[in-house]
Write a protein that binds this DNA or RNA. Structure first.
Lengths: 399, 399
DNA sequence: CTTAATTAAACCACTGTGAATAAATAAGTC
DNA sequence: GACTTATTTATTCACAGTGGTTTAATTAAG
């Protein structure tokens, strides 16, 4: 089952290790890289020189540190590779162009209500082609792929979304990767939207310091991504971090009770859907979540009620996840105002530390540092991740 | 953070890949191994010849398959390496000697009530030395280590175990690896008992076919181990699979309710401790779980009540774990009569398929094929696992 | 004489070693 | 203060070592 490797696999692996270190550090000398990667300066020299030849890495002046010859610093060449990331949501889509250093160069977005798959694909193709043409021809050659972040089981929430049976069926049969590959002549990478966001957090956010975490994103519903040992753990069917359906205890609020014999689920308590439902029950109505601040301070009590209930449900899920996986941290982000995210994270951290059961070690609770665009950004990272991240599989594929 | 590698790392990795394949297949030719491991027959020849030289692999005759030269078959040499496995439980200890093929050569066991750490260490040292001396001097040189499977947080359940504060404190401060290394001049490997059992299941049980599963073992309490991509996932602090403290909904039975603001935990509903408590409440008393069959059929109703309640709690935990990790299977074993394990697994499988929420893919539910000794056997595998399993870290440590 | 497993010898790609080189600072000398 | 020399650190050169690959030869069957 597990595969052996050869020297070119080894080289590719070391190459990726150096690229990753360089991405993590921003700026480093060959010597530093050698120490960090446990390689000899020779090996690093050869690899970095080759990468420089291939325009993936560039010199960035020299730095003097005390005695000795100054270090020639290297960094990833932002123009060395490009990637296009797509987040396809239930109500909106964001498409962005990213350079090799992770900078977002440009971005397009649309909002809509309940798209059908064909419409969505069209929007993606249009956006990708538009962003693509914004680059010079030489740089267009360096786009290494399109990464799509999209919820799984889009058709599974048809009642919550007022979706027709027919549309739900089409969503269920929809194969985004295949459809996109038909219309775009670039490699296509697809991940669950929240797993993609977890990758964004791993590569551009707190992943610099933390290697094992559960990422949670509150959007229309709620989802997550799992990062173990600095690598995305996608699960057997790519469905890891499917937090929406996680069982939790019943809510104190006005939720629809689950069908008999079944469980209450996290999405029913923690999601923008649940928040809006509770606000509605308290007489506050909004069309999109961006209008939330307009309701304040009148709706503050209702909002606080929901926060309290959400924290309750969350702590349940966090202890479940920590029990199974013994994680360093929970990283929470949301399509909600920044200070609200911080408030939830703060209260959650207190609760988690208070209730940590015997036999479990409390994880840190952090707020995501990438923000609401994490999913699209994560999408853009997917092609980089597949081509330049040092996972074990790199070694396996021979020449 | 991630480290590069060199040719000796590569060689070690390939060596381990071949050993693992050979362990999985039992018997294979160089040519077969080459195809499976994605290596050239040449490379395999070199590696296997070296391994044969080192007595880790041996020829096992020739096999004719149609035309052509017959294949020379190879297998692991059972006398190539030995390992001693220990399971240190709250009431008993098993110590066994294992050969390189995974056969248990001999075994010693003791029962007791609430040992203190020193007593336990003494028992382990005695047992290890006894088993060690049962081998010829030449073979004694080939013992590659002692693997200890032991519950974490032994002192954390002092009220349930009627443990004195003083004893609980000593357990909490107990460092088994350090203590053992003082008294045994062999490498010592320590894992959580249920993680060790998961390794046993991975290497000697269903792991032949399944690479991603949550292993659950019902003992005095309940615990688990996580296997992802054919490797044990121990967690940041080695505490992955800490199912005992997993939050679940409240029981319908006679459990002690959790303190206010806290959760009910799995161990309080699914464990031999919980079973005995329920049997007690129904007027049936046993000293050890092996006496359970003596109570039947009188206690059948009480037993069925517990099973029903246990399945309820289990399905909660299984959906939590599957939501986070998207697993292929749940593998359940217990220190209970074999047919009772099968009954629980059967009923659990039905329940899981019935209740699988939208957005989650139901895992298989299987009964463990290693059985009640899984923890000690897993312990014995730990040294083999550390020395011969192709995990990524193999490559990292240079020469 | 075909087929398939296995091996031998030359080869290639990679990293490692140890000496040499380059570029700076620090210390000593006039 | 200018010049020299030693010291330190980064980097590179040439060669050696390891390990897998290639090609062709060998072996043992049908």
């Amino acid at each position: 089952m597990s595969k052996g490797s050869n020297s070119s696999g080894l080289r590719r692996y070391n190459e990726r290790v150096l690229i990753s270190e360089l991405r993590r550090l921003g700026l480093a000398s060959k010597f530093e890289l050698a120490k960090l990667a446990n390689l000899t300066p020779q090996a690093v020299t050869r690899i970095i020189d080759d990468l420089e030849q291939a325009d993936l890495v560039e010199q960035r002046g020299k730095v003097q540190r005390g005695l000795g010859q100054p270090s020639t610093m290297y960094a990833l060449n932002p123009k060395g590779a490009f990637s296009i990331g797509v987040n396809a949501g239930r109500n909106d889509i964001q498409i962005l162009l990213m350079d090799f250093c992770g900078n977002v160069l440009s971005k397009v977005a649309h909002e809509f209500t309940l798209p059908d798959p064909d419409f969505l694909i069209d929007k993606v193709v249009q956006g990708v082609n538009y962003l693509r043409s914004s680059l010079s021809l030489a740089h267009q050659q360096r786009i290494i792929g399109v990464g799509l972040a999209i919820p799984w089981f889009m058709g599974a929430w048809k009642s919550e979304l007022n979706m027709s049976d027919e549309l739900a069926l089409r969503w269920n049969q929809f194969k985004p990767r295949e459809e996109l590959m038909k219309k775009i002549d670039l490699p296509v990478f697809v991940e669950n939207d929240c797993s993609a966001a977890a990758v964004a957090e791993l590569k551009l956010g707190c992943g610099n310091k933390i290697n094992n975490f559960l990422y949670i994103f509150i959007g229309t519903f709620v989802g997550g991504g799992v990062v173990l040992h600095g690598e995305l753990e996608a699960g057997v069917h790519g469905n890891a971090g499917a937090l929406a359906s996680m069982p939790v205890t019943a809510s104190q609020l006005d939720t629809v009770p689950p069908v008999a014999g079944s469980f209450e689920t996290l999405a029913n308590r923690v999601s923008i859907y649940a928040l809006r439902r509770h606000l509605n029950a308290r007489g506050f109505s909004i069309d999109t979540i961006s209008q939330l601040p307009l309701l304040l301070p009148a709706a503050q009590v209702a909002l606080d009620e929901w926060i309290e209930d959400a924290i309750d449900a969350f702590s349940f899920v966090i202890f479940s996840a920590t029990g199974v996986l013994d994680l360093e941290a929970i990283v929470l982000d949301a399509n909600l105002p920044r200070d609200l995210v911080h408030e939830i994270v703060g209260k959650l951290a207190v609760r988690v530390n208070l209730l940590t059961p015997t036999g479990v070690l409390a994880p840190q609770v952090l707020s995501g540092s990438v923000g609401p665009d994490a999913r699209a950004i994560g999408g853009a990272i997917l092609p980089f991740y597949a081509n330049f991240s040092p996972d074990k599989n790199v070694m396996l594929t021979g020449d």
